[in-house]
Design a protein around this nucleic acid. Structure first.
Lengths: 274, 274
DNA sequence: CTTCATATTATCAAAATCCGGAATGAAATT
DNA sequence: AATTTCATTCCGGATTTTGATAATATGAAG
C-alpha cells in the first residue's frame, strides 16, 4: 500500500497473475513475430513453468494461437478483435491529440496533457517538440504530483479532503533543491495557483527543466485535467514559459469543447450498447 | 481438464483472475464509451468489489484511465499502444486472408482456415460467401475435431500418439446421425484421408452442411493447418464439393509459400528485437 | 443547508489459486 | 545413436483472491 510511486513503473509490476499475463501478451505483441515459451521466459525473466502456464491459459481463451507449424505463439483472433475495438475508441483521443500538436507547433516546445491516475500524475498524451532534447517522459509515464506543474495544478483544484489524501500518499520527496516539501508552503502555492490560473514548475522535479500548466475543465466547469508546456531552462526561461500561458489556455478551452461534443452522442441505457 | 469444449466459449471462462481482468478490458473496449465500476459489474455479472479491485489494478498499471471528469474508465495509453502493436502484426495475417478471399471468389462459397488449438479446431480465418446463409461460425470459434473436415484432416496427419491424446480429450459426441463416434472407423478414415489428400464432412457436425478440406504444409512439409470450403448441401452437394478440391490445393500451396517468405526474415538473436 | 438514495471504496478471514524447483517427456541437432 | 534444447507435468507450501459487510463519498431533491 505504501508503494513507492516515485516514478513510473517502466514495464509494469509483475506481482499478480493478471500483470504477468498481460506482460506476456504485451511481449508477443511488441515483438511482432511468433515467440516460443522459452523465449518469453528469457525476455520477461520469468520461470519457464510460469510462462508455460500463462501461455497455455491464453491459448485456451483464444487470445494466443500457435503459429501454424512453428512452436511460437502469435495473437489470436480474439485478441485482434479486442485490439480493433480499443482502436475504434481512439477517435475521441484523436481530436485532443491534434489540438496538442497545434499547441506544440505554436510554442515550439513539448506539450503534455495529464490527469491524476493512481495517486500520481499520468502523462495521458504528449507531443514532442522537434528539438533535440534527451529527456523523454513518454505517454503512460507517471510523475509525482507535488513537484510538477500539472500535478500542482490538479492538486490545487481538488476538494480539500482529497488533496490531503493524495498528499498523504506521497512522501514529498525532494527531487531537486527547489522542490517544495512542506504542506503549508504547498497549500499557499495552491491558493496562488487558483487565483492566477496557471502553475509552474521551476526545476522542482528535474534540474534544468521548466514547465507551465493550465487547467482543463469538464462540461460542468470542474478542473479534471491539465495542459502543460515543458522545456530546458536554457531555451525557455521562466519569463518565456509564462508568455505561453495564453496559448495554453486557448488549447485547454478547445479540449473542453471536444468533450461537449462527445456528451451529445451519449445518453442511452447501459444495455443498449453491448 | 475434462472441460466441455463442445463449442466455443462465447465470452470466455471467468474462473481465474486473468480471465476476469481481460473480460473487464474487453467490456470497456467493446462498449466504446467510458464505463463505471458498477456498469461493468452489471454487464459482466460480477460482484462490485471484485470489479472495483480489478479496475483499480488496471488503472495502476496504466491500462485504464478515468475519463477526465466523469467516473467512467476508458483504455489508457498503454492499452492503446498494445492494441497498435497487435495490429501491426496483422500484416502477416493479411496475405493469408487475401488468398482466402480469392479462393472464396473462385468457389463462390465460404472458405475457412483452421488450426488445432486447445484440443479443438480453431477457425483462425474465414471469408464468407455473399450468399444469404444463416449459419455463422465466426473467426475465433472452436468446433470439434472428430466431425469436421478440417478437424479430421489435421487429426489424420498428427503423430499417432498425439492423435490418441487429442481423441481422448474429446467425448466424440454424435452431433448428427452421420457423425462418426467409433475410433476404429475414424482411424480407417484417417488413412483414407492421408491417401486421397482431402477430407470431407458429410453433415457430421451440422445437419445440411457439407465441407471439404485440404492440408496446408509448413516449410518442412509437415501438415500444420487446413483450408476448407463449406456450404449447405442444397447448393453444394458432395459431388460439387469434391470438384473444388484442386482450387483448395492451390490456395493451400499459396499459403505455404507465404511462410517460406516469413522464414527468410527471421533468424536473429532473441534480444535483438525488443 | 440537510436529507436521502445511489455509487464507490475499505476491511478481513476463509478459501482458492498460484508458485516454481525438480523431474520427465518430446523433438531437433550433431 | 547420442546430445542438447525446449516443452510439459507434478505438487505441497505460500500468497493472493474473494465477496459479504460496512463505511464513505457523491449528487439530487426537498
Amino acid at each position: 500500500m505504501t508503494a513507492p510511486l516515485h516514478l513510473a513503473n517502466p514495464l509494469g509490476d509483475r506481482s499478480s497473475v493478471s500483470q504477468k499475463t498481460f506482460a506476456v501478451m504485451e511481449c508477443i505483441g511488441s515483438s511482432g513475430r511468433p515467440l516460443t515459451v522459452s523465449e518469453i521466459a528469457v525476455l520477461l525473466d520469468m520461470p519457464t513453468p510460469t510462462v508455460h502456464r500463462i501461455v497455455h491459459q491464453l491459448e485456451m481463451d483464444g487470445l494466443l494461437v500457435q503459429e501454424a507449424g512453428s512452436r511460437g505463439y502469435v495473437p489470436g483472433p480474439r485478441l485482434f478483435n479486442f485490439a480493433l475495438n480499443v482502436f475504434q475508441t481512439a477517435v475521441r483521443h484523436g481530436s485532443k491529440h491534434a489540438i496538442l500538436e497545434r499547441l506544440s507547433a505554436a510554442t515550439g516546445e513539448t506539450c503534455n496533457f495529464g490527469i491524476i491516475s493512481g495517486g500520481a500524475l499520468l502523462y495521458a498524451d504528449r507531443v514532442e517538440a522537434s528539438w533535440p532534447f534527451g529527456l523523454r517522459y513518454e505517454v503512460g509515464s507517471r510523475v509525482p504530483l507535488h513537484c510538477t506543474s500539472m500535478g500542482k495544478m490538479l492538486l490545487a483544484h481538488q476538494p480539500k479532503r482529497r488533496r490531503e489524501h493524495l498528499l498523504s500518499l506521497s512522501d514529498l520527496h525532494a527531487y531537486t533543491d527547489t522542490t517544495m516539501t512542506e504542506i503549508p508552503a504547498l497549500e499557499e502555492q495552491f491558493a496562488q495557483i487558483r487565483t492566477q490560473g496557471y502553475s509552474v514548475d521551476n526545476q522542482e522535479f528535474l534540474a534544468g527543466v521548466i514547465c507551465a500548466a493550465v487547467p482543463v475543465r469538464d462540461v460542468r466547469g470542474k478542473v479534471c485535467a491539465a495542459v502543460a508546456v515543458s522545456a530546458p531552462q536554457a531555451r525557455m526561461p521562466m519569463s518565456v514559459a509564462v508568455q505561453h500561458v495564453p496559448r495554453l489556455l486557448a488549447a485547454a478551452e478547445e479540449i473542453s469543447a471536444t468533450w461537449a461534443m462527445d456528451e451529445a452522442e451519449e445518453g442511452e441505457d447501459v444495455h443498449a450498447r453491448i
